[in-house]
Design a protein around this nucleic acid. Structure first.
Lengths: 127, 127
DNA sequence: ACGGGCACTTCCCTTTAGGTAACTGACGCA
DNA sequence: TGCGTCAGTTACCTAAAGGGAAGTGCCCGT
């Protein structure tokens, strides 16, 4: 941990930011412009209010999303990607592209692995 | 969850693969060629034997890493990136580059956020 | 007077990831 | 005889992430 290659620790840095369950969802939904809280929640149906606030706060803290409060009632708060958030989005699209390109390969790799596992178990069972 | 835009679910797919604590470490260490179990463990000092096996099994299952067993004693097992694993490595390097480029910005964004928070709290305290 | 919407916060509970430590089995070496 | 090496497995435990539900404050429409 002390003298561990710095380059590899970067990986952790980025994953600490975007590696959780909701951050990338939010970033992708903010890709098409500023949105308000309820708008995001409706577009990401599975997220809870709590998780949406937590995630947005994290993004705001890291300077990836900007939060604008309009002192009106009912309250209105807008979220939008900062320029830095935009660059992250662009980068993550690369990861998305990779996933889309390889989903089938992964699927079949898993099937093949399961098949191997099963045949091994059968051997062990007969034994 | 049911009728949720497929494109965004991809994000989860990839993070389920590489979003954990050790997977990217292992991938990066396999970047410079095939290695055996103990070799990896020595190069990633903080990882436990359990986590290394778990991580490697996951990578193998997804077809990102190939595992070669030599039936010798003491046992020898080699791990190496598959071609697909290589392409993932290339993609993740983009994320790394982004992180390195923006670490300072994020750092200062955090500081700014903390400063704002503190001034707000001071106001509330005075109130 | 009552219900609803917005943007949250708080509390509490469950699930999961990850860590620790001990055990295995085959052999080679002293 | 017993220790060390390798590549694991197993059982157990803790900390952290995440989910559910309810509460808050303000105003507007009916």
């Amino acid at each position: 941990m002390v003298e561990y290659d710095e380059r590899h620790c970067m990986i952790r840095d980025v994953l600490d930011r975007v590696g959780d369950k909701w951050t990338l969802h939010v970033i992708f939904h903010l890709a098409d412009g500023r949105k308000r809280f309820m708008e995001l929640q409706r577009q990401i149906p599975a997220i809870s209010q709590r998780m949406l606030t937590v995630t947005l706060r994290g993004l705001e803290e890291d300077g990836l999303v900007e939060r604008t409060i309009y002192p009106v009632v009912p309250p209105r708060v807008d979220y939008e990607l900062t320029p830095m958030g935009q660059t992250l989005l662009d980068t993550v699209r690369g990861l998305m592209a990779w996933t889309i390109e390889h989903l089938d390969d992964i699927e079949s790799a898993r099937a093949a692995y399961a098949a191997r596992e099963n045949s091994l178990k059968r051997l062990a069972g007969v034994d």
